[in-house]
Simulated assay, not measured.
Amino acid sequence: MKQALLVVDVQPSFAPPPFLIAGINRLLPTMASVATVERHDESRTPFRAQLNWSPAADDISLVATDRVFIKHGYAPTPETIAYLASLAVERVLVCGIQADTCVLAAGFALFDAGLYPTIIADLVVGSSLDRSGALGVQLWRHHFGAVVERHEMLLST
Results as ranks from 00 to 15, higher is better:
V89A: 04
Q11C: 10
I21P: 02
D112S: 11
V68L: 08
L154Y: 01
R91N: 13
N52M: 01
A57I: 11
F19C: 00
P76H: 12
D59S: 07
E149C: 06
Q138T: 10
G114N: 08
T45K: 00
R26I: 00
A75S: 14
L135D: 04
E90N: 15
P78Q: 09
A82F: 11
F14R: 14
T157I: 01
L51R: 10
L93S: 03
I97M: 15
A4G: 15
A64L: 10
L155P: 02
A82Y: 01
L139P: 07
T157F: 07
E38W: 04
I120R: 01
H72G: 04
R48Q: 12
D122P: 03
V124L: 03
T118E: 13
A75G: 11
T80V: 05
L104D: 09
V37H: 13
R131P: 12
L28H: 04
I81L: 06
L51Y: 12
H151N: 02
I24Q: 04
L110M: 08
I97H: 03
H143S: 14
T30G: 00
S43M: 09
L129M: 12
F14N: 10
S86C: 11
L129R: 15
D59Q: 06
A64S: 15
P18V: 04
A99P: 04
R39F: 06
T36R: 08
E42N: 09
P78A: 14
F14W: 15
T45W: 15
P29Y: 07
W140Q: 09
R39V: 11
L139F: 14
P17N: 02
L5H: 07
A85N: 01
Y83G: 02
F69G: 13
W140E: 06
H143T: 10
A113K: 02
Y74N: 12
R141M: 07
V8N: 01
A109N: 05
V7L: 09
Q98H: 14
P18I: 00
G145K: 12
P17E: 04
T45E: 13
L139Q: 10
V68T: 15
C102R: 02
A32T: 11
A56N: 13
P46S: 12
Y83D: 10
R131V: 11
D130N: 12
P17G: 01
E90H: 14
T80G: 05
T101R: 02
Q138N: 09
L84Q: 10
I21E: 02
D41R: 13
A134I: 12
L27A: 12
S61V: 13
V8E: 07
T157N: 09
T36L: 07
W140S: 07
T65K: 08
L84P: 04
V94M: 00
R150T: 07
A57K: 14
F108R: 14
V94T: 08
G23A: 04
P12N: 03
K2L: 11
I97D: 00
A105I: 02
Q50L: 14
S128W: 12
